[in-house]
């Protein structure tokens, strides 16, 4: 007899049950219950945001090289557990070939962003030649906490495509997993947990998008909201985002890999400092 697994959520580097005590079952193609999954609540969102804020300082201050190493470690762990992810996807009714392709692409994406970690800054920063005696440069800084609503289809790949560039750039994230296909997301949390990603950098909640997404959009301590098209929900989420001028990115293009997935979640900071020109007798002073 199979052990019926309860998939817990991932907050601050731990795997708690939802504080609400609610669950929903995930069935396979035949209707047999595969697992029970947490039906997270607004309070779980709140706890996840607190964890993400706490983790932000340390994560954003890690060296770019170090973040790249940790991302690469994620790719290694993901690759090492390929079989489990493929099985999980197939359990949820995905064909074998599709499942294999999705996991393969997932690993590719993580490796891709691992490589960007110490390069995007160089590509997108500038030294600005101002017309005064100042050194002036613009560099990118992570926005802070990113609320992420993972797409329903391609539940593993989609989550990775939205969350990994966010953390690659030093942000921390609160992710709402695919409501219909949540299993891989929690297994992915286990990958993160065993890959030197500090607790709180990525927090993953399962449950109803209609319940959790508004909680993210309205949270005053979340700096940006990232999603794929969400239908009717989109307008009310966008309205909530205005409350604290949360940046709101909706990615419509199914091709979700590129530098802009990192830079969209960065602020440009410009710094000025005087340049003292001192010489000997030839100096102007």
């Amino acid at each position: 007899m199979d052990i019926l697994k309860t998939y817990k959520i991932y907050i601050g580097g731990s795997f708690p049950r939802t504080e609400s005590g609610r669950y929903y079952p995930i069935a396979d193609a035949t209707g047999k219950t595969l697992a029970n999954v947490c039906l997270s609540s607004r309070k779980d969102v709140r706890n996840a945001v607190v964890a993400a804020r706490k983790a932000f300082g340390g994560w954003s201050e890690k060296t770019a090289f170090n973040r790249g190493q940790i991302l690469y470690r994620i790719a290694e762990m993901l690759d090492g557990r390929k079989g489990q992810f493929i099985d999980e996807l197939m359990d949820q009714g995905i064909s074998k070939s599709k499942a294999e392709k999705e996991v393969e692409q997932s690993v590719d994406r993580v490796v891709y962003y691992a490589g960007w970690a110490d390069k995007y800054q160089q590509v997108a920063s500038s030294v600005n030649p101002v017309s005064s005696s100042h050194f002036n440069f613009s560099a990118l800084e992570p926005m802070g906490i990113i609320g992420i609503i993972a797409p329903q289809e391609n539940s593993l790949l989609g989550l990775i495509e939205l969350a990994i560039p966010a953390i690659c750039g030093g942000n921390t994230a609160v992710v709402v997993a695919s409501e219909s296909y949540p299993l891989c997301s929690i297994t992915f949390a286990e990958v993160l947990h065993s890959s030197d990603v500090p607790g709180g950098v990525v927090n993953i909640l399962t449950g109803k998008v209609a319940e959790l997404a508004p909680a993210l959009a309205g949270h005053m301590d979340i700096n940006a909201l990232v999603s794929c098209p969400l239908g009717e929900l989109q307008t009310s989420l966008a309205l909530s985002c205005v409350e604290n001028l949360k940046r709101n990115f909706i990615y419509t293009d199914p091709n979700r890999q590129g530098l802009n997935f990192i830079t969209d979640l960065q602020e440009v900071k410009t710094t000025w400092h005087p340049i003292e020109s001192i010489g000997g007798a030839t100096s102007s002073y």
């Binding site: 410009t270 710094t271 400092h273």
Partner: peptide, 28 residues
């Protein structure tokens, strides 16, 4: 300058503007 959450940081100067220098804010 890295810890201040602001789009422009003036170190040992203030209110300097230039066409080549990006200007704009964080948060609200």
């Amino acid at each position: 300058t890295t810890k201040l959450r602001a789009g422009v940081v003036w170190a040992n100067t203030y209110n300097k503007f230039d066409p080549v220098s990006p200007f704009g804010g964080y948060k609200e």
